[in-house]
Design a protein around this nucleic acid. Structure first.
Lengths: 102, 102
DNA sequence: ATCATATTTCAACAAAAGTTGAAATAGGAG
DNA sequence: CTCCTATTTCAACTTTTGTTGAAATATGAT
């Protein structure tokens, strides 16, 4: 994973609403959740939620598929793994104080 | 680690100059590096470097100790581990696609 | 005390990110 | 086609972040 992509992913997660969205999507697993459901769950307006979903999707941490009228969002666990792997290995040289956390 | 602290740490790393600073400090290990050295290494002005060092220190990812005229900064690997641990466990429920990265 | 070095602080500004509410787009139902 | 629901887009605005250069603080050397 390239540095610029890592920075974008970190920035995407560095925001309360977006971190809540991601955590919710993790609990929903492969089923994912529709934008409207997410909006209700995190207590944010539709447009605000849409904005944050785009930010997470642009960073590659979630992806979207349309299902009839709804758009379903799902966590991209591989992208999360790539970002975390960068932090652990490239950034922290796999220092034991870091790797023991996983 | 609390959510607010995680967000602050993620935000601290989500910036090119600061990510470069952290990576440099990782390579310096327990010896750390003086603000001036860091400034040269990352190619940023003294005041800009100082600003970013404060941001990283406020987030708890590095700490500072004075040594004569210089101020030595070092990575706090435990803080890095705590942040990453939050992402892996609390956030991603230790999903295998995430844990295999460490 | 004076001077030089190392670093931070400050104020002014520029740029990026987040919020709001209204309007636009897309898809399905009658 | 018209209506309803789901979601995004847009423009205006507010807030937060980052940059700059000058001034302030702190330490050590002469």
């Amino acid at each position: 994973m390239e540095e610029q992509a890592v920075i974008q992913a970190l920035g995407a997660l560095a925001q309360a609403t977006r971190l809540r969205i991601l955590r919710y999507l993790v609990t929903m697993g492969p089923a994912g959740a529709a934008a409207g459901d997410i909006s209700k769950k995190v207590g944010a307006s539709a447009s605000r939620t849409s904005f944050h979903l785009s930010t997470l999707a642009d960073a590659g941490l979630i992806n979207a598929t349309r299902a009839s009228r709804s758009i379903i969002y799902r966590v991209d666990f591989d992208a999360m793994g790539a970002m975390i792997g960068y932090l652990v290995r490239d950034c922290c040289k796999s220092d034991p104080r870091v790797t023991t956390c996983c």
